[in-house]
Amino acid sequence: MAGEQKAKAKMEQAKGKAKETVGRAVGNERMTAEGQAEKSKGDARQAKEKTKDTFKR
C-alpha cells in the first residue's frame, strides 16, 4: 500500500509540473494554478508517506 501511495505522489507531482509548465507556455493562468495545486498535493502526499516510514522504523 505504501509503495502505491508513493507512486501516486510522484505521478501527481509530475502531472502538476507538466500542467504548470504548459500553462505558463501558453499564458493560461488557470492551468498554471491547477498545475501548482496538483504538484502541492503530490508533495503533501509524499511528505505524509515519508513521515509514516519514519515512524514505522
Rank of each mutant, 00 (worst) to 15 (best):
A7S: 12
K39D: 02
K41Y: 04
K41H: 08
S40M: 15
N28P: 02
Q46Y: 07
K6R: 12
E29R: 03
V22N: 11
A33K: 15
T51V: 10
R30K: 14
K56D: 12
G35C: 09
T21D: 10
V26H: 04
G3C: 13
S40W: 09
F55Y: 15
K19L: 13
K50R: 14
T54P: 10
Q5Y: 05
F55D: 13
R45V: 00
Q5L: 11
Q36I: 06
Q13L: 12
T54M: 14
E29P: 03
K52C: 09
D53N: 13
G23V: 00
A7D: 09
Q5S: 09
R24W: 08
E34I: 12
D53W: 08
E38H: 01
G16V: 01
A18K: 10
K39W: 05
A25P: 00
R24A: 11
A44E: 15
E4M: 10
K39P: 01
G23D: 00
A14T: 04
Q46F: 08
M1Y: 08
Q13D: 06
A44D: 13
M1Q: 09
Q46R: 11
A44C: 13
G42F: 03
M1C: 09
E38M: 08
N28G: 03
T21W: 05
Q46S: 10
N28A: 10
Q5P: 00
G16C: 09
A7H: 08
Q46C: 02
E34T: 07
Q36H: 07
D43G: 08
E29W: 03
K48R: 13
K41Q: 08
E38I: 00
V22K: 14
A47C: 04
E12D: 07
E12R: 01
T54N: 12
N28D: 12
F55A: 15
G16K: 05
S40N: 15
V22H: 12
R57T: 13
E38V: 02
T51Q: 04
D53E: 15
A7Q: 11
G16N: 06
A47Y: 03
K52V: 15
Q46D: 07
F55W: 13
D43I: 06
K48S: 06
A33P: 10
K10S: 02
A9N: 06
E49V: 15
M31W: 06
G35F: 08
A14Y: 01
G35Q: 06
G16I: 02
F55T: 15
K56W: 08
K56S: 14
K15I: 00
E12N: 02
Q36S: 07
M11C: 07
K10M: 03
E38K: 03
G42P: 04
D53Q: 14
G23M: 00
A25D: 06
A14L: 07
G35D: 04
